[in-house]
């Protein structure tokens, strides 16, 4: 049987990014992700987001991360719903 290999499968969006300063390389996010979109870090570095397109945006990785701010979650630009202050709506109408 051949050796397994992998390549990072780029997608037009990336749901999460790691703060290299904050990430302690514990790989708890890798274990929490039910899709396995990441592969574990070696030598205490951040995990590798190998299949960004397969993420279903549940946020389990953020939920299980022991360091606040080590993972930043971001919706694709096209899916960022708009909210405004109600007072601004009144101003717009005027």
């Amino acid at each position: 049987m051949k050796d397994y290999t992998y390549k990072i499968t780029d997608a037009s969006t990336r749901s999460i990014s790691f703060d290299e300063e904050k990430c302690i390389g514990c790989n708890r996010c890798v274990e929490a992700c039910q899709i396995d979109v990441m592969l574990p870090s070696t030598e205490g570095k951040c995990p590798i987001l190998v299949w960004p397109g397969e993420c279903w945006y549940c946020g389990a990785c953020v939920m299980e991360c022991p360091v606040e701010g080590a993972i930043t979650f971001r919706h694709p630009l096209m899916n960022q719903a708009r909210f405004i202050a109600k007072d601004d709506l009144k101003k717009e109408a005027e």
Binding site: A11, S12, S15, Q34, I35, G53, C55, W56, C58
Partner: peptide
């Protein structure tokens, strides 16, 4: 095919 994870409501898999 580009972002298959967002194809449907329930978990991708």
């Amino acid at each position: 095919g580009d972002i298959p994870g967002l194809s449907e409501f329930r978990p991708f898999q």
